[in-house]
Design a protein around this nucleic acid. Structure first.
Lengths: 212, 212
DNA sequence: CTTGTAAACGGAGGGCGCCTCCATATTTGC
DNA sequence: GCAAATATGGAGGCGCCCTCCGTTTACAAG
């Protein structure tokens, strides 16, 4: 043997470069065309062969996950920051609304989150867990303060959020979801606490929007 | 001319028969395999050529719509009945929860509704409108009674509902969505009315389910 | 620098599903 | 019956998925 088993070869430079290229291309293609975009288009854009793409990311989901892992990171970090917010319920609301805004900028992101939350794929377990922890912390704080009901889990909240975003490709969906999040968070409040929080901080001049 | 333009030929018997067969097959295949099931599989199951299928239903969505139109009808009828319910908010809640139950039995149904609500296709306009009317009526009644906020539209509610169902393929999703619907409806209530309704009818022994 | 070898490359190819098109078969009205 | 109208079904072109493998390339030992 020329070198012992524990010797690890340095990864080849071209491999590293190509992996990066594919990720870059995938981010662009997925963001524009959604999760069903052609992988061959990704390969072409990255300037690599389709075989190369598949070696680095054996399944479509592998690629997806790699692309959006970092994005999710941002969301968890935001949750961390919001823990210092005085009003726990408000912190939760803010986080949820930030998610909506964030998602709005990345068409493919929503699909990624959906896969995460749907949980049909093992690969997303880690990402899923991080998100659950993020909401969970905010949720727990609000529950501990006695501000919201305690029979709703972090999973429930996450799914509700993603779900509410899921069907919106049309213009104006963002406002709609913002309102829905608002309703949802209000619904979470425990009854007895409602009155004391009745005059909670609200958007100053919420335009009176009539139903239908 | 052998016959004037206004004479309408009776539709051919075989065409009628085949159309029916295709619908039958499609219902089965879509219910089992979801909206992405192979149309060729549908044709095969129906015992017709793929060409025949495409002539009767030029697009995948045409077929979808035909299959699920009647199902949606049931939901609108239920809404009609619920209008006689004493408590408008309770009626709304009931309808939403019935939708969940209904959806649970048809895997393809959810996708159909999603397409409806998403509105990306013109074809669903009619179905969509009927559903909007159904929720709209229940919603309007509750608003008129001053029981819920008036800045949420029927579309909003419908999307929230479908969205909350959308991500749930896993066991137990139904309970989760039921809880979410509950939260959502609570969130719709207007603040000032909350207290007078604080002891509204509730599931007697709601099992204390701790978050996370 | 040379050279052996593990690692990476890329694209041809088999498969599958979508949808169109049209030669053939069936039904209807007269 | 017969002709015209209508329906049929599957072959074929296309695009995408993913695998497989002959060729190329980068690394590191000498």
């Amino acid at each position: 043997m020329s070198h012992s088993a524990e010797t690890v070869r340095k990864p080849r430079a071209d491999a590293v470069r190509n992996r990066e290229r594919v990720l870059e291309a995938a981010k662009a293609v997925f963001s524009a065309g959604g999760p069903d975009a052609s992988l061959e288009a990704v390969a072409k854009r990255a300037g690599v062969g389709i075989g190369t793409l598949y070696r680095h990311f054996p399944t479509r989901e592998d690629l997806f996950e790699a692309v959006y892992r970092r994005e999710v990171q941002q969301l968890t970090e935001l949750a961390e920051q919001l823990k210092s917010e005085a009003d726990p319920v408000e912190a939760l609301r803010r986080w949820l609304q930030s998610c909506v805004t964030f998602i709005a900028t990345k068409k493919g992101m929503l699909a990624a989150l959906a896969l995460t939350v749907d949980g049909s794929s093992e690969i997303y377990a880690g990402t899923f867990e991080r998100l659950i922890n993020a909401v969970g912390a905010l949720l727990a704080r609000a529950i501990a303060a006695g501000d919201i009901r305690d029979d709703i889990s972090a999973e429930d909240v996450l799914r509700a959020l993603i779900g509410m975003c899921y069907l919106h490709d049309r213009p104006g969906w963002q406002d709609s979801v913002m309102r829905l999040v608002d309703v949802f968070v209000d619904g979470l409040r425990v009854r007895s606490k409602v009155d004391s929080n009745a005059d909670r901080p609200k958007k100053p001049a919420a335009p009176p929007r009539r139903a239908k």
